[in-house]
Design a protein around this nucleic acid. Structure first.
Lengths: 254, 254
DNA sequence: AAAGGAAGATGATTTGAATCATTTTCTTTG
DNA sequence: CAAAGAAAATGATTCAAATCATCTTCCTTT
């Protein structure tokens, strides 16, 4: 009975911690510490105004922020947490298009093109995300050339990444693609304090959807990479043991 | 001897015709008949100015307009002719990223991102292409919001296409991808006067590079599609016999 | 603490497409 | 026109990765 209470207490505590982490107070854009590649061009007044009008929301791990095909009525700016953007193929198979973290914006492209959202955004860990109305963003783009230029540059860089990914998937082996996925995760989310553990947790299936392969093949390939001492697997955590070799192995020098 | 002369004459004539086709006089931007998704926002004065400063060039089929990795110092606007944009994979295999025809602009993305050209542009038939200096384009973007917005929209639409292509290559069979390539060619270049022959001529190898497969597989797959009476092959020319069925066959309903 | 379900792991089998090899057909050019 | 080279076609073989099937481990929930 005593043990049971301890047990319960422990769980309540875990939940409390999780809640606490999520239900942070949202700072206004004025003192948002994230580096943001688009909104950084705003003046203090503009920031204050956006901040006044914006909304925000909490998303637990696994929750969907918006769906591919949904009508787009604004843009999302990640205040904290990590997000995956996926698209569905004709047969329903998921493909990760990119990952995003705090400071990054989602769904801005649809505002520019006037389309509906082109991908589904899902929280891969608990998130706090602000929402800026379509009208506000369009107004900003029209009045602040800096914001417009930054948006264009972001688009251009997303496009470059998409095309590079295209070539990878078209031409590289599964092993190389899985390595690329690991490297992408490293570049996007970096390491934990130990300097070698990737600071994300994905299921094997999610990694498979990133590399464009199946779960089974991903499991086998990760095991192989572990055998080769390039990475180390502890549960869902991936440590990169030899970044240089890993990078070498995914060029064709292999 | 007489016959030989006729023969020579015939060949000279063919060459002359080819030359004539290429060495057209370039109209100024003011009376350029191409519909252009970016420059259409320019005023008459702006057009006149761009026209005064722009250059132009002739490219024979097979010639390269610019190379991936080259420093970008301006943007190309296709006046006539057809172009393929390709990227090289790490192992040197080519991948067609997109096709472009008269009215479309090439290399603008590099100006926006400040990178070097991200793809190689090659004339797939004789071309006349104008060249606008980087400085001029940047000036336009800064002073004409319409041009800026149009550029953004173009970027956004290129990005959407790239991501869709990514999913296709990642998830679809070779047959489906080849059909998609044929459909892409149809959408980009349309039909000849007969309303069924694709108005482009590509080698099997080029189709393979578009679909992300090998030449042999492309040949076999085209033959199969021909057997199924979906297309018809006469030399390098492809006729689409049943557009509806073809579209159906490349969704997974297959 | 136990049950149930999800995720991970592993083996066996199949298969689509690449690769290699050769032949045939077109195109170009001296 | 004939030779040479490129592109297309076809067959045989190999192989990487998907699929199918089963089992284990981990996590959640009651």
């Amino acid at each position: 009975m005593f043990l049971f209470n301890i047990f319960n207490l422990y769980h309540s505590f875990k939940k409390y911690k999780a809640m606490k982490k999520v239900k942070n107070i949202i700072p206004s854009c004025l003192d948002c510490q994230n580096k943001n590649k688009v909104f950084c061009a705003m003046s203090t007044e503009e920031k204050a105004e956006v901040s006044r009008e914006k909304g925000h929301n909490f998303y637990k791990k696994g929750q969907t922020i918006f769906y591919e095909g949904n009508h787009s009525n604004g843009l999302y700016c990640i205040h904290s947490g990590k997000v995956s953007l996926t698209k569905l193929g004709d047969d329903g198979k998921r493909q990760v298009v990119r990952f995003a973290k705090e400071g990054e914006i989602l769904g801005y492209r649809s505002l520019i093109s006037g389309d509906s959202y082109q991908a589904t955004a899902t929280a891969i860990e608990d998130c706090t995300i602000c929402f800026v109305q379509k009208e506000k963003f369009n107004e900003l783009i029209a009045t602040n050339a800096g914001v417009a230029v930054n948006s264009m540059q972001l688009l251009a860089s997303d496009l470059r990444n998409a095309e590079n990914k295209l070539i990878s998937i078209a031409q590289k082996s599964v092993k190389e693609r899985i390595i690329e996925s690991i490297l992408l995760l490293q570049e996007t989310f970096g390491f934990e304090n130990d300097g070698e553990t990737l600071d994300v947790t994905l299921s094997r299936a999610e990694i498979a959807d990133t590399a464009g392969t199946t779960t089974e093949t991903t499991i086998r390939t990760l095991a192989k990479l572990s055998d080769e001492n390039l990475i180390n697997l502890v549960g869902k955590k991936i440590k990169i043991l030899n970044l240089g070799e890993l990078k070498k192995a995914c060029s064709v020098l292999d």
